[in-house]
Design a protein around this nucleic acid. Structure first.
Length: 169
DNA sequence: CGACTTTGACCGGCGC
DNA sequence: GCGCCGGTCAAAGTCG
């Protein structure tokens, strides 16, 4: 079994292993695929294929989330705090994508970049993006894999609250 | 002109 | 308590 490295079927980076019709939501597919997997509790990186991986802490978080709360709520219930809450345990998915030239992968959603930071221990900066949809709180972080600079690690935080659209207006 | 990117400043958590 | 660091904000600049 092979897994996609990029949730966007339209991207040229996407392996020709999957064929989607226009109704298909690749992002959801990834979520489903991950949730179906039998992740091993190995302390090392949980590679499920040559392309996709889930970091160990992500795996455990993911397992917990999926086991206890399939639709974990994200955000401020109080509406008082404006900053990020570390206590929250949002759903996080990590994708490793071979992309030498591109940082931001077209996964079908519109993203707005809101920050860039040099990361200690990595020669490459990390890029921060939010979903452009104001009702959608999904964030993603993009950074290069230090051990494989031709690969890009994309960390998705949260799930999209609206339907996937290939050609968002 | 609106949406997006860039970039420095700011904030809060964490370790010492 | 202090400094480091990751994450976010927001003003200014850029682009279509």
């Amino acid at each position: 079994m092979n897994y996609p490295s990029n949730p966007n079927p339209n991207s040229t980076d996407f392996p020709e292993l999957f064929n989607f019709d226009d109704e298909f939501d690749p992002f959801q597919m990834i979520m489903d695929e991950i949730s179906r997997e039998d992740h091993s509790p190995s302390p090392t990186l949980s590679w499920t294929s040559s392309e996709k991986f889930v970091a160990p802490e992500v795996t455990s978080t993911l397992q917990t989330n999926l086991a206890t709360s399939p639709s974990l709520e994200i955000g401020d219930k109080d509406g008082i705090k404006k900053r990020k809450r570390h206590k929250e345990d949002p759903i996080i998915h990590v994708f490793k994508t071979k992309s030498i030239e591109k940082y931001a992968l077209d996964d079908g959603y519109k993203w707005r970049k809101y920050g860039k930071k040099p990361i200690r221990g990595s020669p490459f900066p990390r890029h921060y993006h939010k979903c452009s949809n104001p009702d959608c709180i999904v964030k993603k972080k993009i950074e290069r894999d230090t051990s494989n600079p031709e690969y890009v690690l994309t960390t998705y935080e949260g799930t999209h609250t609206y339907s996937f659209s290939h050609s968002a207006p």
